[in-house]
Design a protein around this nucleic acid. Structure first.
Lengths: 262, 262
DNA sequence: CGCCGCGCTTGATCTGGATCAACCACCGGC
DNA sequence: GCCGGTGGTTGATCCAGATCAAGCGCGGCG
């Protein structure tokens, strides 16, 4: 009810410093370039900065928001790891995505102002937020932000598009390989090791996300291990044959990358 | 190369009449309210109108654009029927969507400026277009348009999200039922009969779209006929038991609508 | 006309992954 | 220490839907 609409002042090029936002939220953020204010000039960044709020941590296991909850915010994951899921009527859930630092969360709620999935922290997470009102204001005012925001939304479409193709066309074994590669690439984009990481989600989550049962995921991983493509110790994964993994994933993902050079 | 950026004039509230656009493209359009300029005031509509171009017809079987083609336009289907598809390396294709009048086409290309699917006309179609430059300008200038555009993009995310859930969770028979209901609702939204329509696509297209083989689609339809839920004559469909069809589809789609009242 | 090719239908068989089942490893509580 | 719960692994069986196969109806064309 308290709508809390910030008053935009014209031609603001300076960061206003106050006790709540000592240095600005984005300007000190490591993953800024993966996030909403990617590619902005210092002046534009300062403007945007002013509307972004730091929110409290979401503890592991806690929800950022629930399923079908009214939402007037857009969130960005600053640090941590989260999953999106849709509850099944039978008590289970369908996992629809995993989120790493720099990812925007809540784009799918713009359509009707209501969330279409629940988002839960798999690791203690810090998140930033911006009100949709402020976002609309800013994207009107800051053209590069507008363009980037459109690209981000479009990328969200492309991602779900690729998941559709995966679920329609790709064999179980290759789904698992693609999943690991996707994580690997997202780690790399954030400056973490690409071939050595920890899975923050359970096997059940992975299976649900990939449209497979937990048993099939296990067998898929076991098979990759037998083929000496990965080493595995519980949730710790080490990719020992990235090229081989990429190759077999690409065979499976031919449908995702039809124009890939032979 | 010839970038053709229209010069925005300030506070233009009148439709400029010229020989090319006698009445404005949108203001005479039957599906305007389903399309980009939904919910605009007369003045805003006139402004938007000015940047929308009518393009020539795309004949049945012809492509609107190809796979992985640079795209600086957003299209809207005015009349006709189209499909989106991704080519398979083996010569086949994966159908990713069907488009009816009022649908926007090309939102997924915003991400990288390159199309991620090919779009073909299944019926002779008229399409409208707007350059991305103009769109960016307009959404900055016309706030209701901006808001609506964000909702449209978000809806595109939601749609692919629902397809993901369908492909991951729903049984073949229920996929077919859901497909028919989806078409039915989209017909109804355009003022056409909801229970009596023609499928413009082949069974193969349907199968590809639903992640099923053509045989399974046939059997699904035959089963629906046997259960007296539909009548069928080639591509002509008549839904004779909409309630029953909805019921069985909802059972299958429980995963898509988990919070549906008992 | 006859022939071909495409879209569609229906039946018979096969199989990838689901389901069912058993078991282990680990951890937290008492 | 024991005990129960959660997450993970592996083996045995089952089944929905893919694959293979055969045939029909129809429109275009030499």
């Amino acid at each position: 009810m308290t709508s809390h609409t910030p008053q935009p002042s014209q031609a603001r090029n300076v960061v206003r410093l106050d006790s709540k936002r000592p240095h600005g939220v984005c300007s000190t953020c490591r993953v800024r370039e993966l996030c909403l204010p990617s590619g902005l000039s210092a002046a534009d960044l300062a403007t945007v900065n002013h509307y972004i709020h730091r929110k409290h941590t979401v503890a592991r296991g806690e929800a950022l928001f629930a399923y079908q909850e009214p939402l007037q915010m857009l969130y960005a994951l600053r640090t941590g790891f989260m999953k999106s899921s849709v509850p099944h009527p039978d008590g289970g859930e369908q996992v629809t995505g995993f989120h790493m630092s720099g990812d925007l969360i809540g784009l799918d709620a713009l359509a009707d102002g209501v969330t279409i999935c629940k988002v839960t922290a798999l690791q203690d997470s810090e998140i930033c937020e911006i009100s949709l009102n402020a976002l609309e204001l800013l994207t009107r005012k800051v053209a590069p932000l507008q363009r980037h925001f459109h690209r981000v939304m479009s990328r969200e479409i492309v991602h779900r598009h690729e998941m559709m193709l995966l679920l329609a066309n790709v064999r179980a074994q290759e789904r698992v390989a693609l999943f690991l590669l996707d994580l690997s690439q997202r780690h790399a984009a954030r400056g973490y090791p690409a071939v050595d990481f920890v899975l923050h989600m359970t096997r059940t989550d992975i299976g649900s996300y990939l449209g497979l049962t937990i048993e099939t995921v296990c067998r898929g991983l076991a098979q990759l291990h037998k083929e000496k493509r990965i080493e595995m110790n519980g949730r710790h994964i080490r990719i020992t044959d990235l090229a081989g993994l990429t190759f077999m994933a690409n065979r499976g993902a031919a449908a995702l990358n039809p124009a890939a050079p032979h």
